[in-house]
């Protein structure tokens, strides 16, 4: 009796603890939840095709949920629950159609996986998801009837999210490469071999410096060698003159009488 009571209490506690998970249906294999079979088979086939393309192209999960008209205000909340449950933290989008609801279909989507993206990258990606949802909603409304709207909405949502899936892949690839370069640079900094080109450039630079130095050194040597110092002599002092004995050079520049010829006369 006691044991039975405890088990019941535990069961009562467990159900609330599991929250709404007990209410969320299992993930549909083809991504379409239409318990009442409202969708035409032709439309369903088309949507299945688009949903699978999104998954293959960009690993994006796209779901379509068709709820009965009495789902009420809790439909949006239920759609989010389903999307999060079926899509997990990966990229997912969900089209919710409440039968006979003039506001339907509505679009939901999320990407909540933890990444090492920058804040900028994360913000931009989230904004892109919202744009994809808006774009799908806008364009799908152009179709005439609800079935067509859902079909085209699913197609557009699949295309958009499929593309975003590729973008996400690209971001992660680039980040991984950047991380890899940093890592390889860090580990290779201390023991990586010096590149031969660097050695050659350094050697050439050193040779040039040495050549310039030697050139100027030799030039200075040459210039110093060009200096000449006459030897000191005991002067031929004469005529009581202290500094000079005079010179013998005298040139008289004359203009001759023969035309314009000028001659100089030297006296010595």
């Amino acid at each position: 009796m006691e044991v039975k009571r405890v088990l019941l209490i535990l069961l009562a506690l467990w159900v609330p603890a599991s929250g709404g998970q007990g209410d969320t249906p299992l993930r549909p294999a083809n991504g379409i939840y239409d318990p009442e079979g409202w969708l035409d088979e032709r439309v369903k086939l088309e949507m299945e095709g688009n949903i699978s393309v999104a998954r293959e192209k960009g690993d994006a999960a796209v779901f379509v949920v068709i709820l009965p008209g009495d789902a009420g205000a809790g439909g949006d909340e239920a759609a989010l629950e389903m999307g999060r449950s079926w899509g997990g933290e990966g990229l997912w989008g969900l089209l919710l159609h409440v039968i006979d609801d003039p506001e339907s279909p509505r679009y939901f989507g999320e990407f909540s996986r933890a990444t090492d993206w920058s804040e900028q990258q994360t913000g931009d990606f989230q904004a892109s998801i919202q744009r994809a949802l808006s774009e799908a909603a806008r364009k799908a409304k152009l179709s005439a009837d609800p079935q067509s709207q859902i079909a085209s909405g699913t197609r557009i949502l699949s295309e958009e999210l499929g593309y975003l899936g590729l973008v996400m892949e690209k971001i992660e690839h680039n980040n991984a490469q950047a991380r890899g370069d940093r890592d390889s640079g860090a580990t290779a900094g201390s023991d990586s071999p010096v590149r031969p080109e660097s050695i050659i450039l350094v050697v050439i630079g050193v040779l040039i410096v040495i050549s310039v130095f030697v050139f100027f050194r030799l030039k200075n040597e040459e210039e110093r060698e060009m200096e000449y110092y006459f030897p000191a002599t005991s002067p031929r002092k004469r005529f009581l003159a202290p500094w000079s004995g005079g010179g013998n050079v005298l040139i008289q520049f004359n203009v001759t009488n023969q035309g314009d010829r000028r001659e100089s006369e030297r006296r010595f």
């Binding site: 500094w243 000079s244 010179g247 050079v249 005298l250 040139i251 008289q252």
Partner: peptide, 8 residues
């Protein structure tokens, strides 16, 4: 005229 004179 020009002349040249030098020191000792």
């Amino acid at each position: 005229r020009v002349s040249v004179t030098s020191g000792y």
